[in-house]
Nucleic acid binder design. Structure first.
Lengths: 133, 133
DNA sequence: TTAACAGTAACAATATATGTTACACTTATG
DNA sequence: CATAAGTGTAACATATATTGTTACTGTTAA
């Protein structure tokens, strides 16, 4: 399956941003992530809407942290990107009346939910400031 | 992300197969899964190679279980389809020398591995015969 | 001899993150 | 004030893996 690296990338950016005292531009971040500035702006749009970063417009601008890294958990960031789509496994729903399918879905769903909850709990306890060390 | 429903589908087929005393053909299974017979044959090829089913060629043929459902765990089937690609989250490796990236990958990897291990343990303890009830 | 089956190759469809180009708008700097 | 350096965003291309489809070969029962 295709992998979604947005969480990983955004974490990377945020932590670098915490170490910088000047705004980071999409061009510089693009160099860091080896990608296009527009891809970066798309990523940052989520962070901006969620209030984690502040946009500084115009020349010399970019983004700066709106909160210290110690106040942002990995879960906060995780939530921004496709929560609920963590697993590549999909359940089928071709026949909502088949008891076998229902049984399979119930079990699979239980297993996946338990695993996701574990991940969420771990992420909630992980501050980005801890990743910076 | 696109979901991979092969595991779910194959479990469905195996359990129906356990309840049937005649061979199931790709056409009949295709009706069950609301898909094409060739898609079914592709799915079944994995099960066949792994020794879970036996092919009965020619007219009136199809597949039958080669083992009772009580001897097959969900993990056995899970293994057949993209083990190691359970999560949609991808790690980045643009700069193997960036300590921040390393730190993020280490933490993310630890969290995901722990969750995957939990899923594997649960699946190993789940016999398909238990799903049939 | 024919119909019903598996196996497989080849190709199309689909969905989604990612990559890219283009343009409007804003701001610091000379 | 003109220009360069920025963001924001729309529009379109790319890549990739599952899924869908057609077509063919070979096998077996009736």
């Amino acid at each position: 399956m295709r992998k979604d690296s947005r969480l990983s990338r955004v974490l990377h950016v945020l932590i670098h941003m915490g170490a910088s005292h000047e705004p980071l531009s999409s061009s510089r971040i693009g160099d860091m992530l080896v990608t296009n500035p527009v891809v970066v702006r798309r990523l940052m749009a989520n962070l901006s809407k969620a209030g984690f970063i502040t946009t500084i417009p115009g020349r010399g601008g970019g983004w700066v942290l709106a909160q210290p890294l110690s106040k942002i958990t990995m879960f906060d960031v995780y939530q921004l990107f496709g929560e609920g789509t963590l697993f590549t496994l999909g359940l089928t729903d071709e026949h909502t009346n088949c008891v076998i399918e229902k049984s399979i879905n119930r079990e699979l769903d239980a297993v996946l939910n338990e695993a996701e909850q574990l991940i969420i709990d771990r992420m909630k306890s992980l501050k980005l400031s801890e990743l910076a060390q």
